[in-house]
Write a protein that binds this DNA or RNA. Structure first.
Lengths: 265, 265
DNA sequence: AACCAAGTTTCATATACTGGAACAGCCGGT
DNA sequence: ACCGGCTGTTCCAGTATATGAAACTTGGTT
């Protein structure tokens, strides 16, 4: 029996190496990668060779370093367009942000962590790549907790098991028990807060984006600071956010298929 | 010796499948993928399973479709930041675009094709993901021809062999011979044009971005239309563009290493 | 010249990839 | 209800392919 939780198979291992290079954050040398790798020298070497040949890694002969390759950028473009909610959601995010005058986040679940897929800042329209792709913890962010709350029992358990429960602020939920009780509250309300659990002074309301069948697609949040507003004020925004969330869900459903018409080949 | 031109090895095949899903442009069903795949049913199935488990593909149980996964978005974020010129180049692109009042492209070579890494439009600041990641032909674009011109003999030959030489307009260079002679001209001038070779009415000047040692990093172009300006006017911009190109190259060199200091491990 | 570290190649071994074929589930038709 | 046809999933023997210790280059340092 192959252990599925572990990166089984050659492909999984190769992707592990890819992740390692990504985590490095800058072009890395072979020996640096070797130091932080669980693979023996020859094996790692072959993986890197393969990935380089495939264009997933780029080798800089001047500096003898490896970086993530351009093929990844190409794939990412396609991924962002076809798999994430961002393309359909963008105009809703913009409208919402303009209306409430705060920063709006769109997130999806990646493994057990929060992947920010898009972000619209009320006052500084930023080029989005700089914002998208970031990952964050699930147990101490508004979007994270809300998404966990709408998971099935089994995936939820697996996700909770992966939380680090690092304490960032006095408000941080520091255990699985606290998180699960918070999740129950979120399920009842239909929305969740971030009460300065991740960063002091930063608060937010978050709502899930669900399919008509109730499956989780992602989450939407409006973020602000304690100096500007409070939780009660944010709570008042919940209905408006839900509006955006359902709109996004509805459009996503249609958009996924322009309807596979019976084009006869 | 393994045939490198072919996607040898398990990893290569898996990535091939990934590309296939990407090319599809929308969430695809298993059978659709099977139809356009060179792999037998069981093999393709296992690949897709693996990639899904690894988060490179996302499965939509409602529709029974596969799309590119979120892990790719995360990787892409890192790729864009560490491997492409875009982060260091952006402010130069913006300055250049504002100054000349035209659209500026930043491109790199992916295999034998042009990968647009960033784009700054003079009049409509756009979120960049929608622009970056696009690929285009090398033989009939300004950036493409310029980048080919600064390749070594052997990679150049390989790249030229991969051009389709599809004729888009009356000006399109339709053969390797024509392309190579154009490349000689570009080498002499240090810059190249697109003379409505890809799209009627669209022209551009392009310059390479080179390391101090002369290795090719990418290319920069200013695009306009025949209705607004002409080639002579664009040619006048070449020195200004070169300025930006050298600045980008210089910054890229520093930035790649905050300097690997002699950290004694 | 001798040494050391970083990177590359080799090769016997057995792991884990392969794909034909058989199986399950789901429809629409008769 | 029964039957084909179609899509998606699982099995399993055979073998191609990945593995990693060790040997070998390469380039720089004492």
């Amino acid at each position: 029996m192959t252990d599925a939780s572990n990166g089984a198979g050659t492909v999984g291992k190769a992707l592990e190496v890819l992740d390692q290079v990504a985590t490095f954050g800058r072009p890395a040398r072979f020996s640096e990668l070797l130091a932080s790798s669980r693979f023996p020298k020859a094996t790692l070497y072959r993986f890197i060779q393969t990935l380089t040949n495939e264009g997933m890694l780029a080798y800089d002969p001047d500096r003898q370093t490896y970086a993530l390759g351009v093929r990844l950028v190409r794939l990412a473009h396609a991924a962002w367009e076809q798999s994430s909610l961002a393309p359909v959601a963008r105009r809703h995010l913009e409208a919402l942000s303009a209306e409430v005058g705060e920063t709006v986040h769109l997130a999806q679940l990646d493994n057990a962590h929060v992947l920010y897929v898009d972000k619209v800042n009320a006052h500084t329209p930023l080029p989005m790549y700089s914002q998208a792709g970031k990952i964050g913890p699930a147990y101490c962010t508004g979007v994270g907790k809300v998404m966990l709350a709408y998971l099935e029992a089994e995936p939820l358990a697996r996700a909770v098991a992966q939380q680090s429960f690092h304490v960032f602020t006095p408000q941080t939920l520091a255990s699985a028990a606290e998180l699960l009780s918070e999740i129950r509250v979120i399920r009842e309300n239909g929305f969740g807060f971030d009460r300065e659990e991740h960063e002091p002074g930063i608060i937010c309301v978050a709502l899930p984006i669900l399919t008509p069948t109730g499956r989780l697609l992602g989450a939407l949040s409006v973020t602000s600071s304690t100096s500007r507003t409070g939780l009660p004020a944010l709570e008042k925004l919940a209905p408006r956010i839900r509006e955006a969330a359902t709109a996004i869900s509805r459009e996503a459903a249609q958009w996924r298929f322009p309807d596979t018409p019976s084009i006869p080949a």
